[in-house]
Write a protein that binds this DNA or RNA. Structure first.
Lengths: 122, 122
DNA sequence: ACTAATGTATTATTGCCATAATACAATAAT
DNA sequence: ATTATTGTATTATGGCAATAATACATTAGT
């Protein structure tokens, strides 16, 4: 995992988003263990408090739950919740992308065309 | 224009990005006049200093230039620069979108398919 | 010359992000 | 019971974003 951060957006939100992605993609399995606050802080090179704040975001939406003591945090194993997460994130990303392209003057058909012809490493 | 802002990202960056979009799309014509600092501040409901900071970003990339006095600010009329702006913004948006979808578990082909079937207002 | 409109600069204040350094709370393992 | 591991809470500090209130600089219009 890379753990580089953009400037201009709070790190705790970026961390929350990345973990959300890992959950949505299944990179962290349903019911699986989330790395500890201190581990993530170490990996990401940030203060534990910052990580905790990120994880509090995920708990607020019931995506993870804490088990104190030697437990750590665990991803929800609710299939509906996880499916909804993935669906919502994909849908949001797509809607945002289309909106952005529209602002740039690309109507949907043009955006689709652009995406089709898109090649990495121009 | 709506002028709502996301939390978590500095407003001055969001303002700069929106004006960049307006320039890239031609909503503000090449060589055209950019609203004044005080006008934008009024419309967006923010402090003039915040707007100035945003516009300083655009000047740093030569997209706009200031004419003091009764002038105001004007968009560059350099066709190459404007074409490059639009190209770069579209490319960045597309690359970011693909990266995001990939993190969610959608390879490019799936992303293209998803976009094709995407309907607003689900 | 004067005025109005615009960009630019300065200073102070408030609030949130992030860090730092601890301490406390709960539970599994021994 | 003790210990180690983990989550949680507290307090202090520094930095940047944003606001606020002015003041100054430049130029067009009159």
């Amino acid at each position: 995992m890379s753990w580089k951060f953009d400037d201009g957006t709070p790190i705790y939100l970026q961390i929350a988003e990345r973990i959300r992605e890992q959950i949505a993609s299944g990179e962290i399995s349903p019911g699986g263990k989330v790395p500890t606050v201190r581990e993530i802080a170490e990996l990401a090179g940030v203060n534990p408090n910052t990580v905790q704040r990120a994880l509090a975001e995920l708990e607020a939406s019931a995506l993870v739950a804490a088990e104190r003591g030697n437990g750590g945090r665990f991803v929800s194993d609710n299939p509906d919740l996880l499916a909804k997460l993935k669906h919502d994130m994909a849908r949001t990303a797509t809607g945002d992308f289309l909106a952005k392209m529209r602002k740039l003057g690309f109507e949907k058909a043009k955006t689709v065309g652009y995406l089709n012809e898109y090649k990495e490493e121009s």
